[in-house]
Design a protein around this nucleic acid. Structure first.
Length: 714
DNA sequence: CAGGGTTCTT
DNA sequence: AAGAACC
């Protein structure tokens, strides 16, 4: 949270500080360059996000009380349902009691939500790159520059008014001229909300304030689909209205408890508590941060989120108590995770397995995990081929980690399993031998441009590839990559890129023939293959685990390709080539998340048939149906109102034309991101203690659009 | 907490 | 590797 000492990558441009409202200028600490005299931060929060996505996918759901179900809980519901008494996080049983007509849609598969979530982030980024995600349905945006630009362009500051509500002000009684920057921020927020609605069909709330904390707190003031601006003079009001410290973003359960132990329960208590005493319980920095939060002070910058740093998949359940079940669950999770990883294009260097055990006391929480590096030959398989066999090896890796945590000879009871890939490398790394110098390419991968319709342009065939070898351009390249050479190839959209290069997940039903399916029943009776074969097992395969594997996997493991390349120790080189491997994973239930609309809905069902989001409104040219890949070379498409024609809609062409050429240019580049935008973030601050933060900034900010700019540190 | 993710700090 | 936080 306290991103202190990080410069504000913007140091270059001076702040045309404007005026009026000044705030506690914390010129204190930090090397941070000029602290923005006054930032204008927006916070967007989508209305019942999952429910909205489902209603877009199936418009008929808009008129019925809809609940999104994950296991036994309604994680969110539409407003129709709320009017009938259903609330978020309500048990399904309770919800049905309250509202028998409630229609339920399973929401455990987050694919669609994730895709829509990234589309929104990308949309916002197309207006301004400083967008930070918070979960799937919230985004922070620093529109300070945009505001200052408009302010400069629009001398007629008069006739300025606020869009939406203004916290604690009955209405238009506020003089926008006293807070022109926030007023302009409210206009931008309104425009962006309109864009999200027209382009993506989403509605949501927005908060406009001078920092993230405040923007987030104020955004929920007027609930469904509205926006609120918080003026500096009302900071105390909004902070004071919070029912307790726990309501302050940044103060979680544990922190709240510790504060309570100090006798601090209300925000005011915390505000007035001596900092020195606070420092005794929490560290120095934490104490200061907590106090600042209570005061509504938050200097943390909007840090562009960029591509995710890890991908994980998990499932919870009532109980899993046998190794076999664990193995199957892990395999199921890994299959989908590997598929996602493959689409992402980056190569994970670390694998982690997390479990949650049941125990009367300490009922929940407490997860335990074990992680290990992913042998690079396995990692490569994930990104290149259809990763099917990578999964086999990963499962084996996972089981080893599992045994480090659980003594399977004793009884155990798990309620959750999570698999995670992290330490994602934008290709290039490979290292031949072991010790490699990974440190070398922290930057080296050259700029990837070429994004274009990156990977998966193949709709119908992609997955499982089995036959049909349509390699996407990148998958081919992917393999080589000499050690430490700065390759010039490009990588697929690397992550960031539209990080979401989604493609329809066409989940064919191949899984049906998965031998494992029929095998179930007899699994316990079987035994033929294993004994005779056991002694030939590859070095790192646990015979016990092996025995539990489906036959074909067993076979696979015995093939030359694996006998000496198993994870764990052997340095072995992946011998030979791969074995033809068929088997599509995708466990039975996992596909096509059949919408499971509970009873009641016949009418609803019919409409659903199309898996397609029955689209929303008109889809502006830019966002084609293929959104995954948008934004390419010529930014022309991909963006609002498109380039030539200009501006995000709200800019007066006339005014624009009268601007100095260089200003026009800057504006344009800001709108259509395409290029690394003007100032390359590269540290124009030569001296910066690069590394540390710079790296991060580079990596992150880069994703603004597809073409990420990667600068060599230094 | 519920459920499925993510990121950051210890 | 575990905790904490946030959605």
């Amino acid at each position: 949270m306290d991103n202190s000492e990080d410069e504000m990558e913007e140091d270059e441009t001076e702040w045309h500080n404007s005026f009026v409202d000044s705030v506690p200028d914390p010129s204190l600490n930090k090397t941070s360059g000029p602290t923005p005299a006054h930032r204008v931060i927006l916070h967007f929060d989508l209305d019942c996000f999952y429910a909205q996505v489902e209603m877009i996918r199936n418009p008929a759901l808009r008129e019925v009380p809809l609940g999104i179900q994950q296991k036994y809980i309604i994680v969110t519901c539409n407003y129709v349902a709320r009017d009938l008494g259903v609330t978020k996080l309500m048990a399904v049983t309770a919800a049905k009691e309250k509202c028998p007509q409630l229609v339920l849609v399973k929401g455990e598969d987050l694919t669609h939500y994730r895709e829509m979530s990234y589309k929104l982030t990308e949309l916002l980024m197309s207006y301004c790159p400083l967008v930070e995600r918070l979960g799937f349905d919230e985004n922070f945006m620093d529109v300070t520059k945009m505001v200052d630009r408009r302010l400069a362009e629009t001398p007629e500051s008069d006739s300025l008014s606020f869009k939406g509500h203004v916290y604690n002000h009955c209405s238009a009684d506020v003089k926008a001229s006293d807070h022109p920057r926030l007023a302009l921020g409210s206009h931008i927020a309104a425009e962006l909300r309109e864009a999200m609605h027209s382009k993506l069909g989403l509605t949501g709330c927005a908060g406009i304030a001078t920092n993230k904390l405040l923007a987030k707190l104020v955004s929920g003031s007027f609930k469904p689909n509205q926006q609120t601006t918080l003026l500096p003079e009302n900071v105390d009001d909004i902070m004071g209205c919070l029912s307790g410290v726990r309501k302050v973003p940044g103060v979680g359960h544990q922190t709240a408890k510790r504060l309570q132990a100090l006798g601090l329960v209300s925000v005011k208590d915390l505000q007035l508590f001596p900092l020195s005493d606070l420092e005794k319980e929490f560290g120095g920095p934490s104490a200061q941060r907590l106090k600042n939060l209570a005061l509504g002070v938050d200097e943390s910058p909007v840090a562009p989120t960029g591509a995710p740093q890890s991908l994980s998949d998990e499932d919870s359940f009532k109980k899993i108590s046998s190794t076999k079940e664990v193995l199957e669950k892990i395999q199921e999770l890994l299959s989908s995770l590997a598929e996602r990883m493959h689409k992402d294009g980056r190569q994970p260097q670390t694998f982690r397995l997390t479990i949650r055990r049941y125990s009367a006391t300490n009922k929940w929480f407490s997860r335990e995990s074990r992680q290990c590096p992913i042998p690079n030959h396995i990692g490569q398989k994930i990104t290149s081929d259809s990763s099917d066999d990578a999964v086999v090896q990963l499962v084996s890796l996972a089981m080893k980690l599992f045994h480090k945590m659980v003594d399977s000879s004793a009884a155990f009871h798990l309620t959750l399993i999570n698999v995670c890939f992290s330490n994602l490398q934008t290709r290039g790394a490979a290292v031949s031998g072991k010790g490699s110098i990974t440190s070398f390419f922290t930057h080296s991968t050259s700029p990837k441009k070429t994004q274009i319709f990156s990977s998966q342009s193949q709709d119908a065939s992609s997955q499982s590839g089995n036959t049909d070898h349509r390699f996407s351009p990148h998958s081919v390249i992917t393999q080589l990559t000499p050690p430490q050479k700065t390759v010039t190839t490009e990588s697929p959209c690397s992550s960031g890129a539209s990080l979401y290069g989604f493609k329809r997940k066409q989940r064919p039903f191949v899984a049906a023939e998965d031998p494992r399916l029929q095998k179930e029943s007899r699994s316990t009776t079987r035994s033929e293959p294993e004994i005779t074969v056991t002694h030939r097992l590859p070095p790192n395969v646990d015979p016990e685990v092996f025995r539990l594997l489906p036959e074909e996997i067993q076979k696979e493991l015995l093939s030359p390709a694996y006998t000496n390349s198993l994870p764990g120790l052997s340095t072995s080189s992946p011998a030979v080539d791969d074995v033809p491997y068929v088997r599509k994973n995708k466990s039975p239930q996992s596909f096509s998340h059949s919408q499971n609309i509970k009873d009641t809905k016949e009418a609803v069902e019919k409409i659903d048939s199309s898996d397609r989001p029955t689209s929303v409104d008109k889809r502006p040219e830019g966002t084609s149906a293929f959104q995954g890949e948008m934004v390419m070379e010529e930014g022309s498409l991909s963006f609002p109102r498109s380039a030539d024609c200009e501006f995000p809609g709200n800019v007066d062409p006339k005014v624009f034309s009268e601007l100095p050429p260089d200003v026009q240019e800057e504006l344009m580049s800001g709108w259509k991101q395409q290029k690394p935008v003007l100032k390359t973030p590269s540290s124009r601050k030569p001296a910066r203690s690069l590394m540390t933060k710079d790296r991060k900034a580079a990596g992150k900010g880069s994703q603004a659009n597809n073409l990420l700019k990667y600068f060599k540190p230094s």
